[in-house]
């Protein structure tokens, strides 16, 4: 049995925890001074101390393992980092190329994916006609299509964006479409009674309801986006971190390969963090799908 008064007593508690959440966000955003930034940073470190520790432990494990293994199999973390100082690798240029492929493909997939899911939601005919072939096409391993894209689109950034796009696209469409479908029918009835237009229903109810699903699709896609671009670069490219890995492979330059791998992963982390940050801004805490 639930008593409202008792729940009322709990309210201040809940509100306090929400307030402290907001304060953390505010102090980080408002840059009120070095003191508050420092305080926020130390709070962050305390909150994630275990995760930081396990990352350091992973690094230590790598370093320990590298002592027992030849350099061309497993270089040490120090040797790997040292490659950053070698100008002939041209890290900045290659990272920027791969980064723009990843972000480009991802952005394109988000725009087209969400638009298509909205179209499915808008018209049952469109959904029945277009969704089955999409599901079929999704069965084709996207990576296996990479050689074709290169034949069609030539070398360069273009085909790699397309490969990244094809990989990212599907989870975004499916998640968004599901989110739009999960809206409580009674909620739609509630506004249909007062003759809400199709656009009002979409704008005020369906789209905000679906946003948590859109973001969960985008998070899945963010991880996949990197794989798409790298495969494209492996197959046909004269730029990018994937190309760099292939070109140093012949000389067994493992430290550079490791460094390229780390940078590729960091691109993925950056994209994921950006999506998570956008989600924090747009979707209230209790509505998130994780």
């Amino acid at each position: 049995m639930r008593f409202e008064r008792e729940e009322l007593v709990q309210e201040p508690d809940k509100q306090a925890s929400i307030a402290s959440d907001r304060e953390i966000g505010a102090s980080a955003a408002s840059s009120a001074g070095p003191v508050s930034v420092l305080a926020a940073a130390s709070a962050w470190i305390r909150r994630h101390s275990l995760a930081i520790f396990s990352h350091v432990a992973l690094l230590a494990l790598w370093w320990a393992a590298s002592l027992k293994v030849p350099r061309f199999i497993l270089p040490s973390p120090v040797e790997t980092m040292a490659t950053l100082g070698v100008p002939r690798y041209d890290w900045l240029r290659h990272t920027l190329v791969t980064g723009s492929e990843v972000f480009g493909g991802f952005l394109l997939a988000t725009l087209i994916g969400v638009a298509l899911a909205v179209a499915f939601n808008w018209s049952a005919t469109v959904r029945r006609a277009a969704l089955p072939p999409l599901v079929t096409l999704n069965m084709v391993p996207k990576v296996a299509m990479a050689p074709l894209f290169i034949v069609w689109l030539g070398y360069g950034i273009g085909p790699n964006i397309v490969i990244s796009f094809t990989i990212c696209f599907f989870p975004i469409v499916i998640n968004t479409a599901r989110g739009l479908k999960e809206v409580e029918p009674d909620l739609i009835d509630l506004v249909r009674v007062i003759r809400a237009s199709r656009w009002q229903i979409f704008r005020k109810i369906e789209l905000p309801s679906a946003l948590p699903f859109v973001f969960s699709g985008m998070k899945v896609a963010a991880v996949l986006a990197v794989a798409g671009s790298i495969v494209g670069e492996f197959i046909g490219s004269e730029r990018g971190l994937g190309y760099l890995m292939m070109s140093v492979q012949s000389t067994l330059d493992t430290p550079a390969m490791f460094m390229a791998l780390i940078l590729v992963s960091l691109i993925g982390v950056a994209l994921y963090a950006l999506v998570a940050f956008a989600e924090r801004l747009v979707v209230p805490l209790d509505a998130r799908v994780s």
């Binding site: 909620l187 009835d189 005020k204 309801s209 509505a287």
Partner: peptide, 10 residues
């Protein structure tokens, strides 16, 4: 008014 409050979470 329905059985569920159906308030918009956001």
């Amino acid at each position: 008014v329905f059985q569920q409050p159906l308030l918009l979470k956001w």
